[in-house]
Nucleic acid binder design. Structure first.
Lengths: 348, 348
DNA sequence: TTGTATGCGTTATCAC
DNA sequence: GTGATAACGCATACAA
């Protein structure tokens, strides 16, 4: 089988059956104007001949591609790959394809990805912004052409589009309050890039919780980084060298929290007895580390599903609803890293 | 901006410039038969008008979609999402789109995904088989139509296609030998579905290593499961209730290994002193758990990159090379879970 | 209930 | 160098 046989078209089926291509086209879509017998004959023949409809041709004609474009920073991160899994789930159910691209947190790559997806004439776009991005022109063409854009997690405050998010302020507040409730008052925070709303709001929640409980904000206890494992470790070292060593720590990612935790362990300090820790995301590592990490869990797969549903079910803009912001619930998962009486359960 | 303006075409540019659409088409592709001045004018106008080429039309005409289809079991797993990240990386570099679908380890979904991707007329296919799959007809159409199919990790032994794999036998052998070298002789194994080659070969490596060192195979020490965290835990419990309690354990996934490890810890047993453990994959959890898990690491991102390169660069079948099997190196990452003199480093 | 004819936006084959 | 035109495979308005 050396030469590629060329793909079967509706014309081939039509010829084999002695009917017109129009009839075949209709019969394949179960158009009721076609007789039951013909319809059956066409579909059987299509099967027998190994027909696979050409999506390009159909899309060109109907101007619908049944394709969702996706742009995320990195797809190999627990939270993000779960969101994508959710997107793919619904898309598949609804007969949509998903084209995935990653920005690697670069503005330029995000723009280029957006252009590519525009050329692919996606029917909708799901985006979580790159760390760098502060300009949003590359999404305008989508909006102008009435292609629904849904932001997930790292949203765009300036654009009036659908958004699927969690209440990051509330989550930050809850996490910090939990530490306060355990009796801690010197509470540090590892913050992320403040031009991304999620990190800004988590920090604001932290600050508000302290304020509400009469605890003064100590800027020395707030450290900025990109919140990787390594940076979590380094930040902890910096904190340990500081004037006031915190008794507790709220981190805006699990990675940073776990880095900090390992740093403490490496120096013979105990968690939570010397420093209590809370992370953010509930990555698989969180329940595995010893002590297991208290953290904020987000419904990642669900976020993806909802995002896909929004894109697919989206009403046209000229109806009453212009854009929707859907806020999902988070959960404070309390584990050993923040609670002194260590009732730690190994089993999930 | 309520009504969607319809997308710009080469005709719009042609009209604006008073040239023909053919000239525009050529100029946009930097065809040298077009004068430098015209070319420049066209490209500038295209930019100014916000032109984005319609991929559907172009694909229909050229019969090339510049799209790679991908089928994996689940995309939210560390190893797999890294492979995909690698694929996307190269694809992006080469101007290809990536359409992702997951089989959820179901045969039926894999077949349906394959059909969808066929309809999308992907220029190539990258697959890692579902757990269930034992029939491979759904890939034949691709091969007959000369669409390159590359299997990654979970390959198809019956189909003559490109493959990107690791030497699972060697890895299983190396892992087991490492345990033997530490002085262990009662070594158990948690195996996966034997109809997937990767698990079969890992087990065969384990068996061979034991044989080569004069250790008898004890079938009671070989337990089958789907190798999840929970199943790893349960398998460990079963082993602990057995006649001969193993001194060491080689698991075909990190998840199972970590489940087993946590089970031991929950019962007050110590790793590696009571039971030494080795996993497989080097998931992020492996270096985080206490003690850190000795495991086999695979170059996951690299596997993805190579798979994408194979798909894109693929020579036509009528040249001399028909198919290639690329075997990548694995590495035994030795950590605290398998070595008694616990020189454990917390820092990566 | 079915057939005919046209166009979707590109590219490629001719011709000039 | 550039222009006219056909063709890719499908869906649909209009006829019959």
């Amino acid at each position: 089988m050396n030469r590629g046989k060329k793909a079967i078209t509706i014309y081939d089926i039509a010829e084999a059956l002695g009917v017109s291509s129009a009839t075949v086209s209709r019969a394949l879509k179960n158009n009721k104007s076609i007789g039951a017998a013909t319809t059956k004959a066409v579909q059987e023949m299509a099967n027998r001949m190994g027909y696979h409809p050409n999506k390009m041709a159909s899309s060109l004609r109907t101007k619908k591609t049944k394709t969702i474009g996706v742009i995320f920073s990195w797809i190999n991160r627990p939270f993000i790959s779960s969101v994508i899994s959710g997107i793919e789930d619904i898309a598949n159910q609804e007969g949509y394809n998903v084209i995935i691209s990653q920005s690697n947190d670069f503005y330029k790559k995000e723009v280029s990805n957006a252009h590519t997806l525009l050329s692919s004439r996606v029917d909708g776009l799901i985006v979580s912004l790159a760390m760098e991005t502060t300009q949003y022109d590359h999404f305008n063409t989508f909006l102008q052409n009435n292609i629904p854009v849904v932001f997930v997690d790292r949203i765009c405050p300036d654009l009036d589009t659908d958004r699927i998010i969690i209440d990051n302020f509330d989550a930050g507040y809850t996490a910090t309050k939990h530490l306060i409730d355990q009796g801690f008052r010197q509470i540090a925070h590892l913050e992320g890039a403040q031009n991304r709303l999620i990190f800004k709001e988590r920090k604001e929640g932290y600050v508000a919780a302290l304020r509400d409980h009469g605890i003064e904000i100590n800027e020395d206890l707030i450290l900025y980084s990109r919140l990787s494992y390594e940076e979590g470790w380094q930040s902890m070292e910096k904190l340990l060298r500081g004037k006031t060593i915190p008794k507790a720590l709220f981190c805006s990612t699990d990675n940073a929290a776990i880095g900090a935790l390992q740093c403490l362990k490496s120096k013979g300090l105990r968690v939570p007895h010397d420093v209590a820790i809370i992370g953010f995301n509930d990555d698989p590592t969180a329940r595995i580390i010893d002590p297991p990490l208290t953290t904020i869990s987000q419904p990642s797969v669900e976020m993806g599903r909802i995002a896909a549903q929004q894109v697919i079910k989206k009403r046209p803009y000229n109806e009453s609803v212009k854009s929707e912001t859907i806020i999902l619930k988070t959960k404070l998962v309390i584990r050993g890293s923040s609670v002194i009486e260590d009732v730690r359960a190994f089993y999930p």
